[in-house]
Design a protein around this nucleic acid. Structure first.
Lengths: 250, 250
DNA sequence: TATCAAAATTGGTCAATCCAGTCTTGACAA
DNA sequence: TTGTCAAGACTGGATTGACCAATTTTGATA
């Protein structure tokens, strides 16, 4: 391989990838941190020697991965806030490959039973209130399924937060978004929301009591019951409604 | 809200989002399945009434989420093959928020101990060979750390595949990509690869024997040991090498 | 009928231009 | 001196039209 062909192969990188890699490099070096503003698109285009539409395509790719956010007139920023994986990729995957309700619940059991156990082991005092508040919210919205569901999902995320592991939290949030999308279509048909709220309360109490084994048991029982409950909600549903209402934040 | 303002608010969707939503809709309806070819960019632009650069930005966003793949001259296709979440989003998250090795291993324990347990419960005969072959590959490459690592990662993915849950598999693949990126930087310093291979073999045997409890125990023990092993590999490392070598398939 | 080169197709990129929000600046009034 | 707000600069959002490069298709030729 002579110098010329080597040079060519190096220049062979696609321009859009070059934009993504450039931002990735700045992040790796710590020169770009959450909340930071990127240089303007026009400037970035000049720096990298590519056109603005190319830069924009790259920024859209980064935005799709949840790395950046753009505000017209203000600029493009590295996503701030807690570590978060968007629901988009998993939603598309679910729509494309037809994930079943049972498969999703099985994955939830692995993730959330583990998270509940860790949360109980940790026993971080300042993580209790957020969980308890969502339980209270559930009891307060027993007659409003949609609002109940929101508290339900937030309770599960609060548990993952109490597990104090950002990786686990990101995974739980991703899958809980998927659950929310599915469930919000059928939750109106739910009954026994009171029983559901009480199960959540028992999970909370186990975590509060720092009893990992009980926390895992209660979470397992809850998810098993929730699975069959959702199954019954889906029974008499107008055809064509269910087949994966997708798209979270894509 | 009158008709006019309603109309305006509907047209207010950003053009790029419109492209993504359009493809998402086609996927939801089943009109676009894995492996299918999309209509050409020019045609898509005309159909949606947007410009081609806008279409391209949308397609890049979809590609970043692993939904589509474009081949110059051939067309743009819905990603085929097994359900897969790219490593990109998690890698960026890790780089931005500085996930620690221990946090990643803890998340792995939740996911992979669960997967190993499920794999043992299922006991699918046709999933045994792929696992066993990777174990053999490890024993065959005890003196070649980089090759050993590849078999290592593939073994863990094979377990997730044996759990027969595509959601779990996608999550395990995503995090194992992250592990691979990190580990490949330090694996040259590894010793006791033989002990590692033997632990993997014991995990395999437990799954083969359909003993979920033992499978979970062995996986837990393996990950705990692997964590401390990797920690020691990172001890005397040239400064600046570690701080998150990111980027998987972004 | 088989081969292969030309043409059509399709993704990859650039250039220049305009629109639409946001932020900054400075003049004016209280 | 200080507060207010309008004009202008800045920045992302999008379009048009053009050209390049890789692939696929087509059709003429052997």
């Amino acid at each position: 391989m002579n110098d010329q062909s080597k040079k060519l192969s190096q220049e062979d990188v696609q321009s859009v990838d070059q934009v993504v890699r450039h931002i990735a490099l700045l992040i790796e070096r710590g020169q770009l941190r959450p909340g930071d503003r990127l240089v303007p698109e026009r400037e970035l285009a000049e720096q990298l020697g590519v056109s603005r539409p190319t830069v924009r395509a790259g920024l859209h790719a980064l935005a799709a991965m949840g790395v950046t956010e753009s505000r017209q007139g203000a600029g493009t920023f590295i996503t701030a806030g807690p570590p978060r994986l968007g629901a988009g990729p998993l939603s598309f995957l679910a729509a494309l490959h037809g994930f079943t309700r049972d498969q999703i619940f099985e994955a939830r059991k692995v993730l959330e039973v583990g998270a509940a156990g860790l949360a109980a082991e940790r026993g971080l005092a300042d993580r209790l209130a957020p969980m308890s508040e969502e339980v209270a919210g559930m009891f307060a919205t027993l007659t409003e399924p949609q609002k109940f569901l929101i508290h339900d999902v937030r309770f599960h995320r609060a548990i993952a937060a109490a597990a104090d592991n950002p990786v686990l939290l990101a995974l739980v949030e991703m899958i809980s978004s998927l659950v929310y999308e599915q469930r919000s279509l059928t939750v109106e048909r739910a009954h026994d929301l009171k029983e559901s709220a009480e199960m959540h309360r028992r999970i909370y109490q186990a975590i509060r009591d720092k009893d990992p084994q009980r926390a895992r048991q209660e979470m397992t029982a809850h998810l098993d019951l929730a699975r069959s409950a959702q199954a019954s909600e889906e029974l008499d549903l107008p055809a064509g409604v269910l087949p994966s209402r997708v798209m979270g934040n894509a």
